[in-house]
Design a protein around this nucleic acid. Structure first.
Lengths: 230, 230
DNA sequence: CTGGCTTTGTGAACGTGTGCACGAGTGCCT
DNA sequence: AGGCACTCGTGCACACGTTCACAAAGCCAG
C-alpha cells in the first residue's frame, strides 16, 4: 500500500454524486446507523452498488471488506474531499423573487453556505431585509466579497442583467458562480460556473411527455398519423 | 406506423441542449437574424460546432449546406420535438418560500408552462394568493390535475414532505415531476423525475474551490490510511 | 486455527458522449 | 456554365461513464 496514493482527480460524475451520498449518510448517522454497505447506500441513493463502491474508492479505501463502510468516517472523508470542513459564504446578486426565496430559505446556512450578503442594482430594493440580511447596492459588492472572503456568487437576476452580474462578481474576486439566469455566461476559464435553468428542466420533461403521448395524443381524436404542417 | 417515427430516439445529452439552442434561436429571431451557422450557434451556446450539427441532425436534415440553418424553421422543429407546440400546465406542491417564488416568477407561463395551481398541506396557507393563483389544499390535487389536464408536477416542499407529495402527484395522474427537495424520490418506473438540488450544486462548486486552494494548502498530517483497529 | 460467509475494490467489457476530419451539397461570382 | 468558397451531415476514433464479475480481505463460528 502506498502511503498516499494519487487520490486527486475525481471524475465529474462522481463529484456530482458525493453530495447525495453525504446527505444520506448524515441522515443515517442521525438515525443511529453506524455502518452501511455499498448496496444499502446504493439503494438509498437510487444508484448501482458498483457505482457507489467505485465512487467511494476515489476517496481512498475507507471500507471494510465483509462489513461495509463506517458512516461517521465516510461522512468525514466526503466532507473533506468536497471542501466542506469549513463554511463557504455566498453572495446573492439580485433581490427579486428568486433572490428573496434563496435568502429566505434557511437551508443554505445549515449546509455550510451562509448568505454573506444580497445585492441589487435597484435602489428601491436596497435597505429592505430578507432572511435576516439587508439588501445592499451592487456597488458594495467588491467590498462585501473582500471583507467576508466570499468565493461563491449566486446570480438570481433577470436574464438581461446576468452577464453584468457575472462580470461584477468576477471583478470583485469571486471564483465560482451558480447561475439561475437563462443565459450562457462568458467568464474567464478559471471561473467555475454551474447553471440551474428551470425552463430547461421543464422542457426536458416536456420532451418525455410528448414522447409518451407520441403515438396517441388525446387531444387529437380521429387524427391518424402525424399532424400535417401548414 | 409511419416510418418517420424511426428517426426518434434522441440522446439524453442532446435533449438537454435543445432547450438552450431554442432559447438562443428565439433571441436571434427577435434580433432579426433569419439564418445561422452551426458555428455561430455553437459560440452563443458555448459548445462545439460539431456537437451542434450532430445534435440538430437528430431532428432531421434541416440545415442548408453552404448556408446554415433557417432560424425560424429550426425554432419550429425544436419546439415540435420538445413537445412545445402547446402549453403544459404545471401544478406546484408546496407554498413555502420556493413555491411562492416559483409562482411569482412569471417565466413559467411565458415559456409554455402556466401554473395551473398551487397546493399546500398547511390549512393556514390555503386561500392566500400567489402570482395570481390561489393556494388550495392538497386534497384538491386530484381534481385540479384532472380538470386542468396537468401532466407535470413541481415539488417545492421541505424534504420530509417530498415523498408524500410525489405519491400524491402520481396518484393524481401526473407523469413527470420536477423535484426541488433534497431527497431521492421513489416513484413508478414510468414517471419521469428530474431533480434540482441547490445544495448539491453549491457543494460541487465547493469541491472545485477546495481543489483550487488545495494545491497550496496541502497541510494534512497523517493522511495515509485509516487507523488499523478501531 | 480453519472454513465459510460477506462485502469491498477493481480489471475488463460495454455503452454513451465528444470532437475531428472530410465528403457532399449549395449558392455566389466570374 | 463552371469553378470556388462555404457549411452541413456523418464516419471514426477517442474519452468518459457505467456495470459486471470476481479475487482479495476481513469477520465469525466452532
Amino acid at each position: 500500500m502506498a502511503p498516499d496514493r494519487n487520490r486527486r482527480r475525481i471524475p465529474d460524475a462522481t463529484v456530482s454524486r458525493l453530495p447525495v451520498y453525504l446527505r444520506i449518510l448524515g441522515e443515517q448517522a442521525d438515525l443511529g446507523v453506524d455502518s452501511i454497505s455499498s448496496e444499502g447506500l446504493a439503494e438509498l441513493a437510487g444508484v448501482n452498488a458498483a457505482k457507489v463502491r467505485k465512487d467511494l474508492s476515489y476517496l481512498g479505501s475507507y471500507g471494510t471488506r465483509g462489513v461495509g463502510y463506517d458512516v461517521g468516517y465516510l461522512v468525514y472523508q466526503i466532507r473533506r474531499e468536497l471542501g466542506l470542513t469549513h463554511d463557504w459564504p455566498v453572495v446573492i446578486v439580485g433581490a427579486g423573487n428568486l433572490g428573496q426565496a434563496l435568502a429566505g430559505y434557511g437551508g443554505f446556512g445549515e449546509r455550510g453556505f451562509p448568505v454573506a450578503g444580497i445585492v441589487d442594482i435597484d435602489e428601491s430594493k436596497v435597505g429592505s431585509v430578507l432572511g435576516g440580511t439587508r439588501v445592499r447596492h451592487i456597488d458594495e459588492l467588491p467590498q462585501l466579497v473582500q471583507t467576508k472572503r466570499v468565493n461563491i456568487g449566486v446570480i438570481a437576476t433577470p436574464a438581461v442583467a446576468a452577464q453584468d452580474a457575472a462580470d461584477r462578481l468576477v471583478k470583485a474576486g469571486v471564483t465560482s458562480i451558480l447561475n439561475f439566469a437563462p443565459v450562457v455566461l462568458s467568464v474567464p476559464r478559471a471561473i467555475e460556473v454551474r447553471k440551474v435553468d428551470l425552463a430547461v428542466e421543464l422542457q426536458i420533461l416536456s420532451y418525455h411527455e410528448q414522447r409518451k403521448a407520441g403515438g396517441a395524443i388525446h387531444a387529437v381524436p380521429g387524427a391518424n398519423g402525424r399532424p400535417v404542417s401548414a
